[in-house]
Structures are given as structure tokens and as C-alpha cells.
Simulated assay, not measured.
Amino acid sequence: MWQEHKQWVERAIRYIECHLKEDIDFEDVAKHIAVSRFHLHRVFQIHVGMSAAAYLRERRLSEAAIDLLYTDKRILDISMEYRFAGQDSFTRAFKQYYGFTPLQYRKGFRTFYHMEEERIMDQSMSLEGQYDTSNRSTPAGWMLTGVHPHQYTVGVDRKIVNRGTASGTIRAEEQAHPQGFGTLMQMFKADAYCGKRLRLSGFLKTDKAHMAGLWLRIDGKDEEPLAFDNMMNRAIRGTTDWTSYEVVLDVADNAHAIAFGILLSGTGQVWADSIRLEEVDVSVPTTDGSGEGEALRDAPINLDFEESASF
């Protein structure tokens, strides 16, 4: 009986995956499997940990999140494409699931990847992995978000620590999407730091990480990122021991919110400990390429490419 129920769930998931952009609901899923709504609901809940209706909704939100990052489609068009009643309904559901409005998510997180990158769809992903929900225990005060965040497990590690008795960790599941990422993050009001220079620092350790790092973002009142650095030009890769890293940004006078976190992109695992946020003076250069730490030329040079490079 267990194997039969498992096959029902797998058939239901395949049906849902093929009709994410169509006007289907739980009733249609049950009809396709040819079992009663009540029976399918109970079996799906046991095997997946959520109802088929909730799974359908979360899959639509996940695909909508990818469109927000990788396309220039209007938010209204995305909401209608994934069968939400309207942009307001989509925005409420998206914020409840991801912690951001669609606009905040697009402007903040699309910076992690270049728009010209080709999306790689891993067709070998197992059905069992698609509905793993073991990652929902986030450390107190933190939240998990990203692209395909359900493919990342987060938590507190009391065996691998830098100082004290615990560290935070993000681990990619075996079936993690090559271009997915998970981030443990927080967001708070910028009032205490407006007009100041802010440093985010911490110790990170990685195991077979495709790409990891700290990130810091300064947002304006209209959800517009004013400054951003996610260490992508100096990302941590592979297996590394505990090392101190930092991100430094200027907080504009009109800043409204500050967001920060630990990022793992693709495969592997990252641990974080001893995270600090502190004001620093202007002698500490910013890390986004716009601080006083970079000496600017008075005028452009070598526009005809005739000057010889010195090696």
C-alpha cells in the first residue's frame, strides 16, 4: 500500500509540474490520479509534508521567483502567468513565502547573477528531492530565502564552530539546482546608520562550495537598492578553513532598510560565526568599488589601444 501511495504522489507531482501555468486546482489533480480528494490529500500530506494545493502554490511561487530574476517580464504579467488572481494577490503570497515583495526580490537578488547567463535545467532531479521540506528550521532571528530555497538545509551546528558554542550553516541538497542559491538573512531599519559607513564582517568556513560569501544591501524607501556587495568578485570556493571576511558600504542619508546575510550558491556547505555589524570611519574603504579606497584617474587613457601594456 505504501508503494502505491508513493506512486500516487509521484503522478500528482508530475501532473502539477506539467500544468503550473494552467488553471488547475486540487480537484483537477485528484481527478487525474482517479482517487478521492480526501484520500489524496491525506496521502500527499503524509509523503510530502504539505497538501497538494500548498505544493502547487509554492511551485508556482518558485518559478515566478526565477522569472523575476532572469526576465524583464512585468510583475503583473508574471502573476497572471502563474494563475494568481492579480498582482496584489501575488504580492501577498510572494512576501509571505519569501519575506520580500516581488519588486524587492527582483531589485535585490537579480544582482547575484548576470541576465545573460543561460538557465540550466537539471532534468535528472529526482521526484523525492523536489518535495523535501526538511530545511524549514532556521536559526532564531534569521530567515531563509533565495532561488529554489527548498533545496537548501539551514540550521545551527554545535560541532563545527569558530567561537562560542554554535555556528549557522547552509547546506545544499544533492539535487540542488546549479543556478539556485540559499541565503540566511536579516533586514532592519537603517535609521541608526544613515550617513555612516557600515562594515559587515564574520568568519566563514566552506566544504566543496560552488560559491559562498557574505552580502550587504542598502535599500531606499521605494525598495530601490542604493548600495550592494555580495562578494561575487571574490567569492569563496571549494573547501576552506575558518577565515574572516568583510563587506563595507556607505549608508546613504535617505536609506530606509539594511539587509545582510550569508550566501551559498550551487553545491556544498558554508558555516558562519561571529557575525558583526559596526560603523567604521572613512579610512576603511568600501568593497563595492565605489569607495575612496580606489584612486580615480583625472581623464580616460589609451582609447586607441596603442599604448603598450607592461607585464
Rank of each mutant, 00 (worst) to 15 (best):
residue 7 Q to W: 08
residue 8 W to A: 05
residue 10 E to A: 08
residue 10 E to P: 07
residue 15 Y to R: 03
residue 15 Y to K: 04
residue 23 D to A: 07
residue 26 F to D: 15
residue 27 E to R: 14
residue 27 E to N: 13
residue 30 A to M: 04
residue 34 A to V: 13
residue 35 V to P: 09
residue 39 H to K: 12
residue 39 H to M: 12
residue 42 R to W: 07
residue 43 V to M: 10
residue 49 G to I: 01
residue 51 S to L: 04
residue 54 A to E: 09
residue 57 R to G: 08
residue 62 S to K: 09
residue 63 E to V: 07
residue 64 A to F: 02
residue 68 L to G: 06
residue 71 T to N: 06
residue 72 D to C: 10
residue 76 L to A: 14
residue 78 I to K: 02
residue 80 M to F: 12
residue 84 F to N: 02
residue 84 F to T: 09
residue 88 D to V: 05
residue 89 S to I: 07
residue 90 F to C: 01
residue 98 Y to S: 03
residue 100 F to T: 04
residue 108 G to E: 04
residue 109 F to M: 00
residue 109 F to S: 00
residue 114 H to K: 11
residue 117 E to V: 10
residue 118 E to S: 10
residue 119 R to P: 07
residue 120 I to K: 02
residue 122 D to A: 08
residue 126 S to K: 09
residue 128 E to S: 13
residue 131 Y to A: 01
residue 132 D to W: 07
residue 132 D to N: 10
residue 144 L to M: 01
residue 146 G to M: 00
residue 146 G to V: 00
residue 147 V to G: 09
residue 147 V to S: 07
residue 150 H to M: 07
residue 151 Q to C: 12
residue 151 Q to N: 12
residue 151 Q to H: 13
residue 157 D to C: 05
residue 160 I to G: 08
residue 160 I to P: 08
residue 160 I to H: 08
residue 164 G to F: 00
residue 172 A to W: 00
residue 173 E to Y: 11
residue 179 Q to W: 02
residue 185 M to N: 14
residue 187 M to Q: 13
residue 187 M to T: 11
residue 190 A to Y: 01
residue 192 A to F: 10
residue 195 G to T: 06
residue 196 K to F: 06
residue 197 R to C: 05
residue 207 D to C: 13
residue 210 H to M: 15
residue 211 M to C: 10
residue 213 G to S: 00
residue 217 R to E: 11
residue 219 D to N: 12
residue 226 L to Y: 04
residue 229 D to C: 00
residue 231 M to N: 01
residue 234 R to G: 07
residue 244 S to E: 14
residue 246 E to V: 14
residue 249 L to R: 08
residue 251 V to H: 07
residue 256 H to E: 12
residue 257 A to K: 14
residue 266 G to N: 03
residue 274 S to P: 06
residue 282 V to M: 14
residue 283 S to P: 09
residue 285 P to S: 05
residue 285 P to I: 04
residue 291 G to M: 04
residue 295 A to W: 11
residue 297 R to T: 13
residue 309 A to Q: 12
residue 310 S to Q: 14
